[in-house]
């Protein structure tokens, strides 16, 4: 009961600003509305006992990605202040596709049997993640650094070209 109430509150905190993100004509306001959305998702992670992921969510998404998005908006010509058009000729088609997608997703999630795994979340999240990184997922962990390297190089190349 209590859990459900928390979930509903957090969903509202996540979804209502998300609607503003999509509908706002002012791009900076839209980007700013992302912050409560990210914080709502943080709350959802907390209710799932994933404390470490919640910390990452705030640090990376609310603190870093939002700033990057704001930079991009402020850098693009006419991105700020100018009121962009929200709708185009394909509104009806888009709504139809989105609705169909929602129906399919809901149908599948309710029809699927989700296996419940026994066991509890480790109380100390970060340590558990660290142990997993260094033992069972050591190779994956190293490959991650390659992914980061590639994304850094890609970012620099793209940004350079634009210059």
């Amino acid at each position: 009961m209590g859990k459900l109430a928390v979930f509903i509150i957090l969903s509202c905190v996540t979804l209502i600003p998300a609607v503003i993100v999509v509908t706002s004509r002012n791009m900076v306001r839209a980007a700013l509305s992302l912050v409560p959305t990210f914080l709502g998702v943080t709350g959802l992670y907390v209710t799932l006992d994933a404390e470490f992921v919640a910390g990452i969510q705030v640090l990376i998404y609310a603190g870093a990605i939002t700033v990057l998005i704001l930079f991009v908006i402020m850098l693009t010509e006419g991105g700020t202040g100018l009121r962009v058009r929200q709708m185009n000729a394909q509104t009806k088609l888009g709504a139809l596709v989105a609705f169909g997608m929602a129906v399919v997703l809901i149908a599948f999630t309710t029809a699927t049997r989700w296996p419940v795994k026994a066991g509890t979340m480790p109380r100390y999240n970060a340590a558990a993640v660290g142990n997993a990184f260094l033992t069972s997922y050591a190779l994956v962990f190293e490959v991650t650094s390659l992914v980061l390297l590639v994304s850094l190089i890609g970012a620099i190349i793209i940004a350079r070209r634009e210059e």
């Binding site: 910390g55 640090l59 609310a62 603190g63 939002t66 700033v67 704001l70 970060a126």
Partner: peptide
Amino acid sequence: DINIGVLYFAAMASLTVI
């Protein structure tokens, strides 16, 4: 005394930028 204390601190401090 949050388990991820210092990470939490860094995360909250990063919100100031916005």
